[in-house]
Amino acid sequence: MARWGMVIDVKRCIACWSCTISCKEEHFLPPNVFWNRVLIGEAGKFPTSRKLIYPVLCNHCADAACVDACPTGATYKREDGIVAVDYDKCVGCRACLISCPYQQRTYYDEEKKNAEYFPGQGKTEYEKIGEKLYPFTCGTVMKCNFCTERIEEGLEKGLTPGTDDEASPACVIACPVGARIFGDLDDSESEISRLIMEKNGKQLHPEFGTEPAVYYID
């Protein structure tokens, strides 16, 4: 069984936010909910300071703090490494959200459900159809699912996630500079395993011991 992971090539990334916005369209996320973000900061001092750009998303940790914290089992680790949320089991205690050192979870409530992209002007057709196509449950916690649907449907069609667009996460194919590479961490021959080895891939905050499946190379 594969363990899905991602490498983000920070050197390539130009902070265009395509990952963030594509993800929103893929999952019909309501206003101000993000499963993918880009963090922009700085290190060092003028004139040798460096701009930092880090696209972040759920790390699908091997030892996920959220999975441990969840009292109901709604948040669980799949065999393929994806940390998933079963909205039908989620009680909305937000222990997972609080526990995540990467803050990649969002509590979905009435306020978010009712939010409009054009505030006060009603929901657009896009928002309305989204509620049908990709419904969320109020009072539960949501987050990036590595586009599980795409992976599963792709695998059913005999496609390879990370290689075939149809079977890969939306943010990966949306990246206009090829900064996101998706694949099987357990396969030492996969491109992402090779990149992590060759370019010394780093995880965010390894000190939390969560073993993220998202690596950064520079």
């Binding site: 916005i21 594509s22 057709e125 896009y126 206009p176």
Partner: peptide, 26 residues
């Protein structure tokens, strides 16, 4: 209803693969 925008992989008019920048997607 238009719901999502991507690049076209078969075309080099644009980014890598089916990539498109954020404002294009938006």
């Amino acid at each position: 209803v238009p719901v999502k925008i991507e690049g076209i992989k078969e075309s080099t008019m644009g980014g890598t693969g089916a990539g498109l920048c954020g404002k294009g997607v938006a």
